[in-house]
Design a protein around this nucleic acid. Sequence first.
DNA 1: GAATCGTGGAT
DNA 2: TATCCAAGATT
Length: 346
Amino acid sequence: MSAKPFDIPLIAPRLLAWYDAHARALPWRAPPGANRTDPYRVWLSEVMLQQTTVATVRPRFEAWVARWDSVAALAAADEAEVMAAWAGLGYYARARNLHACARAIIAEHDGRFPEEEAALRRLPGLGDYTAAAIAAIAFGKRAVVIDSNIKRVAARLAARPTGEVRDVVDAITPDARAGDFAQALMDLANALCTVRAPKCLACPLRENCAGFATGDPAAFPARKPKKERPVRHGTLFWLRRGDDVLLVRRPTKGLLGGMRALPTGPWSEAPPDLSDAPAVADWRMLDEGVSHGFTHFQLDLSLACATYRGQEAPDGEWWPVADLARAGLPTVFAKAAAVFGRVECA
DNA sequence: GAATCGTGGAT
DNA sequence: TATCCAAGATT
């Protein structure tokens, strides 16, 4: 008897067999033969991987676990150190929630991760996906794990035009090896069931795939309409005092919340000016600016520089320019600092 | 439900 | 070069 499209009982065994032969070797995965994964490493990797590529996360994960090797160590760290260590990874609320979650596990869960999906779901920074992923991968629970990769694979398997596929994923998820199954779906999505030009001829689920049967699997799920991305302007202020430059900390909420930063005025549609400078000084505008793309707008920053000669200390902290790499600046500010490393401000 | 919230790589 | 988008969560 041959397989028919979306033949549910066949999917898990076929996919797991494929995974046993083709699983990516990743530093947060248990080595072959280990039957239990450190939940700290699973949790950390899952949070880092939210909207972030494996290639970006891999070295950052290695550096992180070398510095904080357990949830207890992370909970004991200063929040400012944790935020700085996240610099460059983006979506900085993740770092704040990561730290809050570590402290919640120490204070409210006796220092151990809860194993049930529902309890995990209540922890800071853990949504439906991450709670299910940790329950399945770290604790072997059967959980319906759905991320954008799995959503795409499921939509194609069932030939669903929308991403409403929870029933599909629930139907194909096995009772045993649910964590491997979820990771197998994600590896399959990454290697074969890609957004564009899926490699169906190499796919172990081709015969089970209703999307493949239609002849145009890439049509599932339908693409979302694109959104506008307006341009905002602002002025960034590079204020030197001796070997130091003035840094500020951004408000906890909002864009780049809680991160160290170079001072700027507001970001708006208005043309840039010097009216929001952090101190009275002989400001000079540079010819060169910095442009940076955020998710929902593009920022064009004008650059102003000056030497501080005042008496009163402006708000912020003086930071050695030679040590800026340790300040934990988000990328847009690191870009600006790089410009001032090249351009004289005389 | 829609907006908000970063970044770097692929195409 | 412009666009898409990746192991989403929160409000």
